[in-house]
């Protein structure tokens, strides 16, 4: 039972990465259909939000679910990295810490989303609702780039040193780290629709990388 239950946990943890990507991807797909405009007047924003309240509730749900699954997946990924790196496992510890922070960002985004609904529906506070809505939208777009840059860098360094992952994944991860830095710098400098588009590209790349790492771990757990 001892080793069996651990294996089941690790297998589920490997699948949690794909689950997180699906969940967070659904959240983005729903958010793209929002008629609510974050940059309209406070009153209009609150009215539009309440008119499509269930969509906002679903985004809260999938971000909380996605954040929890990211946390679970990071436990499994960091465990594999620690095994490959060996003690004292400094890089894999850093990777795990970064993964926990990234999970926290998604959970915070879910919290702000929920607060936007509460402020508009229960407290008649449209300006507060709009600030909470902006925070929910911005948190993952602003913070994912720098966090996943450091996470992919730590993974790439361990992978290059130990060949813990296939060469194609190692090269892709090595290329992803500087790409995220460049995109983050462009995102920091850009404004308006460009900023939003680049922010979405950063989150999309981070989710794609998570899905690839998850699929690799699923393959390993089967083998």
């Amino acid at each position: 039972m001892t080793n069996e239950s651990s294996t089941i946990w690790d297998r589920l943890g490997a699948w949690a990465g794909v689950g997180a990507v699906v969940s967070l991807g659904i959240g983005y797909a729903i958010a793209l259909t929002f008629k609510t405009n974050l940059y309209s007047t406070d009153g209009d924003f609150a009215r539009e939000l309440l008119a499509e309240r269930m969509k906002w509730e679903w985004v809260t749900f999938v971000r909380l679910l996605g954040g929890t699954l990211v946390l679970w997946f990071m436990g499994t990924l960091a465990g594999r990295l620690r095994q490959a790196e060996g003690e004292p496992a400094r890089l894999s510890s850093a990777a795990f810490g970064l993964g926990v922070v990234w999970a926290g960002v998604w959970l915070l985004s879910g919290l702000f989303n929920s607060a936007a609904i509460r402020l508009a529906a229960d407290f008649a506070n449209p300006s507060g609702a709009r600030v909470a809505g902006v925070l929910a939208d911005q948190a993952p777009r602003t913070l994912t780039g720098c966090i996943v840059f450091a996470l992919s860098l730590a993974t790439a360094l361990i992978s290059r040193r130990t060949r813990a992952f296939p060469a194609s994944f190692t090269y892709a991860t090595t290329a992803l780290a500087p790409l995220l830095v460049i995109l983050s710098l462009i995102d920091w400098y850009a404004s308006g629709p460009n900023e939003v588009g680049i922010g979405h590209a950063i989150v999309g790349l981070a989710l794609l990388w998570t899905a690839a790492a998850s699929v690799l771990l699923i393959g390993r757990s089967r083998g």
């Binding site: 809260t60 909380l64 679910l65 954040g67 929890t68 946390l71 679970w72 959970l107 879910g110 919290l111 702000f112 929920s114 607060a115 509460r118 402020l119 407290f123 506070n125 300006s127 507060g128 600030v131 909470a132």
Partner: peptide, 25 residues
Amino acid sequence: PAGVGLLAVLGADSVLTLTPALSVA
């Protein structure tokens, strides 16, 4: 009042919204 309302909701709701997901994990 609007700023206080936002912060008060975040203060009270942060633990109630996030505890279920985190406690399950």
